[in-house]
Simulated scan of single mutants.
Amino acid sequence: MAYTYRLAALLVLISATVGFSSAVSVEHQLLKLNATLFKGNISLNISNSVQKNINLNIVWYGKFTPIQRTVIVDFIRSLNSPAAAAKDPSVASWWKTTEKYKGGASTIVLGKQLLLEDYPLGKSLKSPHLRPLSGKLKGGGVGSITAVLTAKDVTVEGFCMNRCGTHGSKSSTVDGGAYLWVGNSEEQCPGYCAWPFHQPLYGPQTPPLIAPNGDVGVDGMIINLATLLVNTVTNQEAVSTCTGMFGSGAYPGYPGRVLVDKTTGASYNALGLAGRKYLLPAMWDPQTSKCKTLV
């Protein structure tokens, strides 16, 4: 079972050509579209009554530089770090909104990592390849998540056409749990899967934001990884419902008011470990019934 969410982003960008007054109706369209796209459940089979530790394993498919891997790993480590939480606005405070969902609080623990730099299945993957790839890392089991991350020179069925990533349940033959996949779109479709760090494929061609870690592909992956990770843990389309929103005042085609690094000019809205900055998507707050942004 797999899910896509970037069709919603496409609707946001196209709708920007209609005008600002359409924002409310577009929000209703997004909610209806997400209800259609994301049927089913991604159960992690973990207790709802206690603080949960969820092991997040990573399969790196293709060639990633050490810096690229570090940017992504630092993001994952920042989700529940007390040191990261002390900063404002932080990756940890963004993640804390997930506590408001039925599953309650959860701690993401970085698990095992596997480098598949020799492209064992080639550079053109089909959808059925993703679940077996997630099973390459043994262990974790029920209550774990395995992220399959594909490099910029790897094509995946449906990538850039109607999705930037998917998530689903792992079969019992690969020790349970859930999996997700996110691709690096730097060379294939940055205007689709790495917006707002690249001009969009459709809608107003406003200047793109500068990526906070200087890597359009990887910073775009962070947005998509964050989206799918929240959706998996909450068992809701908690971030997909708020597609295209990063700061206050966001409307279709405009990411909203975010923070800007005075030295680099890069845009961000969350601080993480090792001095890292990230741009994270808005998350639906079930208590206020609104999309919540950090800034």
Rank of each mutant, 00 (worst) to 15 (best):
K87A: 08
M161K: 06
G249M: 08
K136W: 09
G111N: 01
L33G: 13
S144N: 09
A23P: 02
S21I: 13
S240R: 05
S171A: 10
Y3H: 08
Q29H: 04
G265R: 10
L228P: 05
G253Q: 11
H129Q: 14
N41K: 14
S78Q: 08
G135A: 10
G158W: 00
G141T: 05
E237S: 02
A85K: 07
Y254P: 06
P200M: 03
G256S: 13
I210S: 12
A23V: 15
L228H: 07
A178F: 08
G176S: 09
M1T: 13
D215M: 02
P281Q: 03
V71I: 14
C189H: 10
G139L: 11
K292Y: 09
V24Q: 09
G275F: 03
W284A: 12
I54Q: 05
A211R: 01
G253Y: 12
G176Y: 06
R6S: 11
L121A: 13
V91M: 06
D261L: 00
E99C: 02
S134F: 10
V216L: 01
V50K: 07
L259N: 07
G141C: 07
Q113P: 03
S49H: 15
K52V: 15
I222E: 02
G168E: 07
F159K: 08
K39V: 14
L11V: 14
V109F: 04
L130E: 06
L225W: 01
N34V: 15
T155V: 01
S25Q: 12
S47P: 11
S185W: 09
P204Y: 14
A105F: 01
S81A: 13
R276T: 06
R257Y: 10
Q113M: 11
V59Q: 00
K290T: 04
G62D: 07
L37R: 09
D219R: 05
A84G: 06
I145W: 09
L201D: 15
N269M: 08
W60A: 01
Q113R: 08
V71H: 12
M161A: 11
S169I: 15
Y251G: 05
Q188E: 09
T166E: 15
K262S: 14
C291D: 09
T36V: 15
I67N: 12
H198C: 04
L271K: 14
V216C: 03
S144Q: 11
V233K: 05
V18L: 09
A23W: 01
W95N: 07
P286C: 12
G275H: 03
V156N: 06
E237Q: 08
V148M: 00
S21N: 12
V50T: 15
G203M: 09
Q51P: 08
T155H: 00
S78F: 01
Q205T: 08
Y101K: 09
A238Q: 05
R257P: 01
S172E: 12
V148C: 05
D219M: 04
S47G: 14
I67M: 13
R257Q: 13
Q287C: 15
M221V: 04
T107W: 03
M161I: 13
N41W: 06
A92K: 02
A270D: 13
M221P: 01
L228M: 02
K96N: 07
A85E: 10
V260A: 05
C189F: 12
